Amino acid sequence: MKNVLIIQSSPAGENSKTRQLIEAVKNRFSKEYKEVEFTERDLVKTNLPHVQFDDIATLFSHDEKFQSPFNTRSMELINELRKADIIVIGMPMHNFSVPSNLKAWIDHTSRAGITFTYTAEGPRGTLGGKKAILVTSAGGVYSSGPAQSLDFSEPFVKTWLRVLGVEDIQSVRVEGLSVPELAVNAVANAMRDVERLKL
């Protein structure tokens, strides 16, 4: 049995290209494995609050049973990560970075003493052995060329995953959606990349 956690962050609904690509990724998993269980966390519907002053005590606590609303939400999300063999994250680029709901999810699941620990050699994750697939979309082209240095989304999420111990990371990008001559084939090209994923 493969457990796949899918994180959706696009607010674009049926028009979302990351959601379309994730459906293709799910179809590949269903064909690849006889038994696969999907857990889907739609951050648009979940509407996680951003970290507030009263949440700081929880973030500095290593106690998974710490009594606070933040800790209840945080541990629910962390346990979804723990259960997953593979994490699929849909993340359209918003102003050169990730959607704010995805950042809120990352803040809820980044817990020193729980999902990573500090060591003399730097942070060490507790979620090793998992795989991750990042499904990204952007109006421009950021994987190469003059705008590459403006992509703060994929490098950020890859760094965060590695802090948690996830080293096996693949990406599927649909780019140039706001450039007419590129947008025509953008989704089709990304779908071919879905077929090349190593599951």
Results as ranks from 00 to 15, higher is better:
84 A>M: 00
84 A>L: 11
84 A>E: 02
84 A>C: 08
84 A>P: 06
85 D>H: 09
86 I>C: 01
87 I>K: 03
87 I>P: 06
87 I>M: 09
87 I>F: 08
88 V>Y: 01
88 V>M: 04
89 I>G: 07
90 G>K: 07
90 G>M: 07
90 G>S: 06
90 G>L: 04
91 M>A: 14
91 M>E: 08
91 M>R: 04
93 M>F: 11
93 M>S: 02
94 H>D: 03
95 N>S: 04
96 F>V: 02
96 F>K: 12
96 F>P: 01
97 S>H: 08
97 S>I: 00
97 S>T: 13
98 V>S: 08
98 V>K: 00
98 V>T: 05
98 V>Q: 10
99 P>V: 01
99 P>H: 10
100 S>Y: 12
101 N>L: 10
101 N>Q: 13
101 N>H: 09
102 L>F: 07
102 L>M: 02
102 L>V: 05
104 A>P: 05
104 A>N: 04
104 A>D: 04
105 W>C: 09
106 I>D: 03
107 D>M: 05
107 D>C: 06
108 H>W: 02
109 T>L: 05
112 A>R: 09
115 T>N: 06
115 T>C: 07
115 T>P: 09
115 T>M: 02
115 T>A: 04
115 T>S: 08
116 F>G: 07
117 T>F: 15
119 T>L: 13
119 T>V: 01
119 T>A: 06
119 T>M: 03
120 A>H: 13
120 A>T: 14
120 A>G: 06
121 E>L: 13
121 E>Y: 11
121 E>Q: 14
121 E>H: 09
122 G>F: 15
122 G>Y: 15
122 G>C: 10
123 P>H: 02
123 P>Y: 09
123 P>W: 10
124 R>T: 14
124 R>E: 15
125 G>L: 13
125 G>H: 14
126 T>F: 15
127 L>H: 08
128 G>K: 05
128 G>I: 03
128 G>Q: 13
129 G>V: 01
129 G>R: 01
129 G>S: 00
129 G>A: 04
130 K>H: 02
130 K>N: 03
132 A>C: 06
132 A>G: 01
133 I>P: 02
133 I>L: 11
133 I>G: 01
133 I>S: 00
134 L>Q: 11
134 L>W: 04
134 L>H: 11
134 L>Y: 05
135 V>R: 00
136 T>A: 12
137 S>G: 05
137 S>T: 12
137 S>D: 08
138 A>F: 13
139 G>I: 10
139 G>R: 00
140 G>T: 11
140 G>N: 00
141 V>W: 08
142 Y>Q: 08
142 Y>L: 10
142 Y>C: 06
142 Y>N: 06
142 Y>G: 09
143 S>W: 13
143 S>I: 10
144 S>H: 13
144 S>C: 14
147 A>T: 11
148 Q>F: 10
148 Q>I: 15
148 Q>W: 10
149 S>K: 14
149 S>Q: 12
149 S>R: 15
150 L>S: 12
151 D>M: 11
151 D>E: 12
151 D>H: 03
153 S>K: 07
154 E>S: 13
154 E>P: 02
154 E>M: 04
155 P>A: 07
155 P>K: 14
155 P>L: 00
155 P>E: 09
